[in-house]
Design a protein around this nucleic acid. Sequence first.
DNA 1: TATTGTTATACTCTATAACTATA
DNA 2: TATAGTTATAGAGTATAACAATA
Lengths: 144, 144
Amino acid sequence: MTARSRDTIDLIPIAREVRLAAQSLARHVKDHTPSLAPHLFTVLAWLEEGPATAGDLAGRERVSAPSMSRSVSELEERGYVSRTVDPSDARQKIVSLTASGRRALSKGRKDRDEYVAALLVNCTPDELADLQRGAELLRKVVEQ
Amino acid sequence: MTARSRDTIDLIPIAREVRLAAQSLARHVKDHTPSLAPHLFTVLAWLEEGPATAGDLAGRERVSAPSMSRSVSELEERGYVSRTVDPSDARQKIVSLTASGRRALSKGRKDRDEYVAALLVNCTPDELADLQRGAELLRKVVEQ
DNA sequence: TATTGTTATACTCTATAACTATA
DNA sequence: TATAGTTATAGAGTATAACAATA
């Protein structure tokens, strides 16, 4: 099981390198951008694409309905989203981004991207191109 | 602040692409490898390099002393580590990997790497080389 | 006194089960 | 009855504060 055949690439060492790099960056980003917690940030990001019901959001985030209910309540308390009853089905509530939520989302993105950009300042143009290429491939592969 | 100068690369879009790819993979790995929790897995990984005190481990993981104390207690209950009083300073305790802990670490690594490797099966050799190159650069940059 | 580690306690994010209100 | 959402409750993992043992 250690090697497959003479002309097949062993994926495990590549997988490990990619995994360790990704996990390392993800952890550093999380540790350095405490202003808006990841589970709230990602909900705002979903809502940027348009209003959604709480159930929708729970499904997209693969989180339980009560967890999403709490997250949305917290976002509403902070003024980042509003909840309105769906006119066509009064059981559902439509969650929408407010202007303030849009600003919070932008700031969260800015903080995260600027932290990563600061890590890249000493890279050569070739290295930046390689990083971008690898990232594009990785997203394609993960979201396939 | 949106652009720096005509001949300087804007790092923000690259940073975002790299960040989103890394966070996406990290989240998927976490969701698909529940056997050994991340905070226990990483402690075992540190101990692979040799025994350490609880304080050492807390510092390396950037976690509070009580949190590390709890983690080490759980690892000890599972038989993955042993604690012995430091002969040269009886306040300290030396934490060491057991044979069982070494096996748990290997299994945790195997599960994680195989999950990622499975995502890579449809990549071409060129794409794999690009992914590896990007990952190497990213680790260098994050751990600089 | 200062330091190492643990115990006591609390906060955050998660889950399942029970409940309310609509359909 | 079934479904959308919330409230009640509990389980992880984290933290700070208080404590015990040792230096």
